[in-house]
Amino acid sequence: MDLLNAFVALANFVLIPATAYGAQLALGALGVTLIYGILRFSNFAHGDTMAFGAMVTVLFTWWFQSMGISFGPLPTALLALPFGILGCITLVLFTDRVVYKFYREQKAKPVIYVIVSMGVMFIMNGLVRFIIGPDDQRFADGERFIVSVREFKAMTGLKEGLAIKTTQGITVVTAVVVVAVLFWFLKRTRTGKSMRAYSDNEDLALLSGINPERVVMYTWMIVATLATIAGVLYGLDKTFKPFVYFQLLLPIFASAIVGGLGNPLGAIAGGFVIAFSEVTITYAWKKVLVYAMPESLEPNGLVQLLSTDYKFAVSFVILLIVLLFKPTGLFKGQSV
């Protein structure tokens, strides 16, 4: 038995990747939940909004790289991020003006919004594929690791290595900063308060003189910012591929619903719940158990509950369980 090595292996293969993934999901789910809270529909185009913002960032990153601009040990993409956010905000506000505004004035049913958002999703998806192509794109640069396996082993003398990728570190730090700023904005500023008021009770908010179009505009701007950041972080950490963002839609929705749609705090919690379940259920536990169990009990197989191809099934099952037993989510979300 060697619990220290077991813990290091656990941290290396489960805790750190799941934390980074959870932060990415949480940022994505925050966007979905804000749209739901203010505009009251599930935005199917969110995954492709993330892809679009990330694509603009990738293009700017390449441009900076070709000019020789770099960010030292950090990825150049962080420098390009503000431009990506601006690009995404422009697209999203344009979409709202030409597409969603009409249905708001009609007071259309939520299901119509969902269909419309599906149309938007396909247009955005087509746009991204048209501009950058459907393939994998690499845009990460800078230092690859904060702590590499070799350094860690030399430092501690343990048999198991521990690596923290720069992108994982950046993901978590950025997510914490973004969430802190967002909550400060929602709780302390006038606009943030009017957004919360509008989300809680539309009629009362209108009565007290809040301009709904302004609230909607700010919401879209915040959502585009969150989506771009989430998309870029995911792209840096894993890979940028348009179709992958479409597939992320399911875990993102699952996170938002698990936490309670319309509840920002819930979205964050939901993101981590989904990420940790996905990673722990699809991880082959043999490596950890070899250290943690007495030799006589060591497992023969991989001790993998589900193959990694089924990671979406995990978020789906969690989604079904929440819908069956607690449709408002862990943190009370808006009406069922």
Binding site: S42, P110, V111, F253, F312, F316, L319, L323
Partner: peptide
């Protein structure tokens, strides 16, 4: 059985999920 009777969006999300999973299986 799970998603009907709740908000209309939930059926959309659940069907999106089952389709992905059937293909994965």
């Amino acid at each position: 059985k799970t998603a009907l009777g709740l908000r209309s969006d939930y059926l959309a999300i659940a069907t999106l999920g089952i389709a992905e999973i059937i293909i994965a299986v």
